[in-house]
Amino acid sequence: MPARRIIPCLDVRDGRVVKGIRFRDHRDAGDILEHALRYRDEGADELVFYDITASAEGRNVDYDWVRRVGRLIDIPFAVAGGIRNVEQAAACLEAGADKISINSPALERPELIGELACAFGSQCVVLGVDSFRDGDDYRVKQYTGSPDTTCDAGRGTTDWVREAVDRGAGEIVLNCMQQDGVRAGYDIEHTRIVVEAVPVPVIASGGAGAPEHFYDAFQWAGASGALAATIFHDRLVSIPELKEELARCGIEMRR
């Protein structure tokens, strides 16, 4: 395993960074470039930018900010939001993104995963999954950018990630929806089930509130990376201190 990755996630709407609690009530959290540079300087291993309104409203990613981010930072970053075809993905990669992350469009048309993997290679294709614990079952949600559009995608989570990997997805970002924004820790069992279901890297998402939550995601769920927004945006945990703490606990970190 490479060093485990610490991945700040920036939800983007109308060219600004926003953050919501459980996918609702988004509030402005600042300028994209300022955040990107700060995280790079603090030692983030990768960044993910989600255009949270794109899929729900049927809009495309605005590639101009992708280009500006690409010029500014020298660590990898992924862009998600409304990428529906190979041409849009190519424009996004040309603008400097290293990976594209698809979620609702892949549920609408699973063939998209294979088309992207064929054109750019699996290592560029990330599948974002919004997963919901429903009793003993895990279900996929769709159009989660807004509470008004969120709906059941009609798929079980493990079936969907296995199918996506068979079609060419090279990484899974698993967002456990009940945990998102509440800082109670990643859903370890949920994440471990997905890690064991697929051969590709799995990134834990949703619920980080303290350094031990990252430890649990790496040590007990087997996640390759852990994604978080609130605790980094609100400076509840600093990335250098987090990495030092995790390294002290025996988790390999790039420092």
């Binding site: 395993m1 490479p2 060093a3 990755r5 291993d45 699996s122 090279g170 051969p199 590709v200």
Partner: peptide, 11 residues
């Protein structure tokens, strides 16, 4: 513990 693709920062 060794997913493929090999993705991330290695020493």
């Amino acid at each position: 513990g060794r997913p493929v693709p090999h993705m991330g920062w290695s020493r």
